[in-house]
Computed example of a mutant assay.
Amino acid sequence: MTSYRPKSGLEAAIARLIAPRVQQITEQVAEAARDNAPPTKTWKSQGDALVRPEHRAADGQEVPENLRFVVGSPAYDQQHYGAGPHQQLREPRDPEGTPGATVNCRCQTVSDPDGIARNIHAHPVTVSGSRIVGVVTCHGNRVVDSEFGTDKDDAARFMGRAIDEVARRLRR
Rank of each mutant, 00 (worst) to 15 (best):
V71H: 07
D164H: 10
R169Q: 12
V29M: 00
L170T: 01
Q28C: 01
P6G: 05
T2N: 13
T98E: 11
I120L: 06
P99W: 07
P99E: 08
D151V: 08
G84W: 03
S73T: 15
E96V: 05
G72R: 09
V143H: 00
R157I: 00
V136P: 01
R142N: 12
P95G: 01
D112Q: 12
C138T: 11
K44L: 14
R171H: 11
Q78I: 11
E54K: 11
K7G: 06
R106K: 15
P113S: 09
N66Y: 11
A13L: 12
M159G: 05
R90N: 11
L17P: 00
I14C: 05
F69C: 03
E91Q: 15
R157S: 08
R169H: 09
V133P: 09
D35R: 15
K7D: 12
V70T: 15
L10H: 06
T137K: 01
R68Y: 08
V103D: 13
R142H: 12
P124E: 15
P6I: 08
H86A: 13
D154T: 04
N66T: 05
A83Y: 09
S8W: 11
T150L: 00
T126V: 13
A167V: 11
V51C: 07
D112W: 06
A32R: 02
A13Y: 12
I18M: 14
H123C: 06
T109G: 02
Q88A: 07
G140Y: 03
A58K: 06
V143Q: 01
T150E: 01
G72S: 11
G115K: 04
N119K: 07
K44R: 15
L67Q: 04
P99Q: 10
G9N: 06
Q88V: 03
H123E: 13
R68K: 12
G140W: 03
T126G: 08
A57T: 15
L10S: 14
Y4S: 06
S130N: 11
T26S: 02
I120A: 04
G134E: 10
S3Q: 13
Q79D: 14
E96D: 15
N36Q: 00
T98H: 15
E147A: 00
N66M: 07
V51G: 13
R118L: 05
V103K: 12
G160F: 00
A57Q: 15
A101E: 09
H123M: 09
I120Y: 04
S146E: 00
I116L: 06
P92E: 08
Q28W: 14
T42C: 05
E65L: 13
Q61P: 08
C138M: 01
T137D: 09
R106F: 12
T109Y: 06
F158H: 01
P99L: 08
V133S: 14
V110W: 14
A122E: 08
A122L: 08
Q78L: 07
V127K: 10
A49L: 07
Q46M: 12
A155I: 01
